[in-house]
Design a protein around this nucleic acid. Structure first.
Lengths: 385, 385
DNA sequence: GTGAAAGCGCTAACAG
DNA sequence: CTGTTAGCGCTTTCAC
């Protein structure tokens, strides 16, 4: 890598010139532009102040005259200088690195829109706040799953981590993370996770009740519920909300057929036949997420079952799948991007020194009525709520 | 943060003990476990060698006796030591950071499965190779789009960048990246990008021809093509392949109706009505990607058009959408994860010192026949290829 | 083979 | 308000 000399007198050794620039504040100081990335010292030299002062300006520190501040910024612009994050991190312990932990097996599962939406939301907020985001997919059934996330934090000196279910309720993991001087923010923690760290989510019980009530209002009486993995506490809460709504309507929650999938399209498809083949099949199938609902819908199509004419199917999350399939899915909107953004903000606040007790932010959800749910076959439509 | 003393005699000041550990190789050397992260010096002290030696062992360098090598590794294990990437990067200029540039507007577009698959593939390979991945979404129509990716590279000292279309063919961008001492790898470059940097992709022209031929074989004669953005050269090549196949079959390529979307479901849905309302509507609609095909399919459903009975629709990419919708999409499989993995490997090789001329790796594609395409209405099925 | 010494570029006390 | 002095933890010459 050769130095590039912008202005120099003929016959002057370029190397010498650049050395001169490096060790003296001579007349060449401004004329020489090196191809090597400028350092904070270059900036300091360029505007004749101490390195510390530049550092203060860069970090918005106090005790710098406005006039100097301006000059420093001018030099920064002039030299096209930017801080070396590695050096900053080494010296100050500020890696400005955040991580998003997603529960999924990179090898087995197809990409999930849920995770993708969360990542996008986090990415956007990180961009604005000047953080970098590392996304890590961890298979939730691996015995060393905790070690995998801790390893990432240690190795990258992450300052904050976002945990999705079921990690969001893994208090042991959360505490291990905090022991590493790293902040944690839980996305949709369903229980214990809320006390251990900041969290963000919707009122899952209410959301479950809302979608159930909507189906009850449409006239449905025979329900089936497609649940997710047991460790996903938020999803369990939705289930509880659903049961509560059923009971409130005078129905017996224990009569609803329950099957458990793993939130994938595939599991949704695999579980549907047994539901359809029951002696008295449900008229409404409430699924714990959109992907499983899509799987169920696909099976219904395959069997020529009219949706929603004969079977109503609902999802949860309102991810893009719900708009892409036919009929478009009636589902519960969950503001995933905003949730991730909120998690990043919470982390940013903690990194900034906020020591208040863990906070849980509840964002609002909404039942989105599209076309996959309607009145049950032969039912008179009851008065709408 | 308090030091944790594993073994100590009563009355000994913990702090003193840890100081002793720090400055002497006394009897406490092994007994003391500090909560502070161990450094390379701790390891060196632990097994009585110089820091340099530990560094050599860690980096697989030469000139270390095997016996010493073993001891060093033992100490590393014993202390649960791991290198500080920031420090390593500062000293050696190895950030081990890669970036994936995706063309999309974080605010406007829904998450794309295409980008997601690429990211997952890259993530997996990075994990194995010890790199970290930064994903950056850049809106392709922003005037400062190039600056955004260069900024990321500069600020994070990325050693390699993967470019997706249309960035994959932006030679000016590629050269700017290389000028920053960063390697570039192009995913599906369609033209110029191939000469400027390593690349990976499928034979797009052949893939376009294959899917067209398949439809011709099914008996279709009236085609429509839903193209993507013009800058996506790989997609343009598919278009060329399609035209070639048509011509080879004695059909006039100029007779196929062409509309241009932006690869989103929404654009696919928006563009379909005009195709359907033509005086002689197509019997086969070939789309440049799965999302647009899904959009088209959705419109067909809405109008009660039987797919594939009256209209055949095909996608491209074989992303998860194609399996989730009904009927499942006939499409062209593109090994997106493998492509991203290959790009990471190429980058890794370059970082490792490979200076050979840019290489383009062609992976194989395949027409995946599902249910969205069939014989045109009233046609006798021609002999299959 | 191994070690000592010199930084990489930055932040953070601590003086003035 | 500003500058001086130490490191942060590691890689890399260069001696031995």
């Amino acid at each position: 890598m050769r130095d590039i000399i912008a202005t120099t007198s003929p016959g002057v050794d370029p190397l010498l010139t650049s050395v001169r620039r490096a060790y003296a504040l001579g007349p060449f100081a401004e004329a020489v532009v090196s191809s090597k990335k400028p350092t904070i010292d270059d900036v300091a030299r360029h505007c004749g102040v101490a390195r510390t002062t530049v550092s203060r300006v860069l970090n918005g520190g106090p005790n710098v005259r406005d006039e100097v501040r301006q000059r420093v910024w001018a030099s920064v612009k002039a030299l096209d200088y930017r801080v070396n994050p590695q050096a900053r991190s080494l010296a100050g312990g500020q890696s400005r690195m955040l991580a998003l932990i997603v529960a999924s097996d990179l090898d087995a599962q197809p990409n999930s829109f849920y995770a993708s939406a969360l990542e996008l939301g986090a990415l956007r907020e990180c961009l604005g706040l000047g953080y970098q985001l590392l996304t890590r997919h961890v298979a939730q059934d691996r015995p060393n799953r905790r070690e995998q996330v801790l390893e990432l934090i240690r190795s990258q000196r992450c300052q904050g981590v976002m945990l999705t279910p079921p990690f969001a309720d893994d208090v042991e993991l959360i505490e291990s993370i905090q022991a590493l001087d790293c902040h944690a923010a839980c996305i949709s923690p369903g229980g214990a996770g809320r006390d251990a760290a900041d969290g963000v989510g919707i009122d899952d019980a209410a959301a479950g009740a809302d979608i159930a009530r909507r189906m009850i209002d449409l006239g449905h009486r025979r329900f089936a519920f497609m649940a997710g993995i047991p460790g996903h506490l938020a999803a369990e809460r939705r289930h509880e909300g659903l049961r509560g709504a059923l009971a409130a309507a005078g129905l017996d929650p224990d009569e609803v057929a329950v099957v458990r999938g793993d939130f994938t399209f595939r599991s949704g498809a695999a579980l549907t036949p047994q539901l359809l083949e029951a002696p008295t099949p449900p008229t409404a199938l409430i699924c714990a997420n959109d992907d499983m609902a899509a799987g169920a819908l696909s099976v219904a199509h395959g069997r020529g079952i009219d949706v929603p004419g004969r079977l109503s199917i609902t999802g949860f999350d309102d991810t893009p799948v719900s708009e892409v399939i036919w009929p478009p899915l009636t589902t519960v909107h969950q503001p995933l991007r905003e949730m991730a953004g909120e998690a990043v903000r919470a982390l940013s606040g903690r990194i900034g020194g906020d020591r208040s007790p863990p906070r849980f932010v509840t964002l609002s959800h909404a039942v989105v009525e599209r076309a996959s749910a309607g009145a049950p076959p032969g039912a008179r439509l009851r008065a709408r709520a």
